[in-house]
């Protein structure tokens, strides 16, 4: 088995995950894309483990750990999404703009920066 094949598949999966994280509005879809990226990593780990013939099976064990952590992450992520949904009635990522200041027209008042919403 050439290492190139799984590694290329993994790179493509990872890029697709990146696209999903960046382009999807729905928070659950973003979580799914994160899962895609994690799986790409898993594939990489397994492929290199096989290639290196590691007798301790570090790659595969780490894959198992990643799977476990991914499960935990999905659980927590969904809990957060649900909490957001409870308070905001929406899970659209681009409508959660609390990070930004409220933008005024320039010169229409003191730029005091104290108006976080």
């Amino acid at each position: 088995m050439h290492v190139v094949y799984p590694v290329v598949v993994s790179a493509l999966l990872f890029s697709i995950g990146v696209y999903g994280v960046l382009a999807r509005r729905n928070a659950i879809l973003v979580l799914m894309s994160v899962e895609l990226m994690l799986n790409a990593v898993n594939l990489n780990l397994v492929a290199f483990d096989v290639w290196l013939g590691d007798r301790l099976h570090g790659g595969q064990v780490l894959t198992l750990f990643v799977i476990v952590i991914a499960a935990a992450e999905v659980g927590l992520g969904l809990a957060i999404v649900l909490a957001v949904f409870r308070t905001r009635r929406t899970v659209d990522v681009d409508r959660l703009r609390a990070l930004a200041e409220v933008v005024r027209a320039p010169g229409s008042g003191r730029p005091d920066g104290e108006d976080a919403s």
Partner: peptide, 22 residues
């Protein structure tokens, strides 16, 4: 409305990432 406004930027970044990684 499942895709947000910066879809094209996202596609660009993803394609660039893929290109670099591959």
């Amino acid at each position: 409305g499942l895709d947000s406004g910066n879809r094209w930027a996202a596609a660009l970044v993803a394609v660039a990432t893929a290109a670099v990684l591959v």
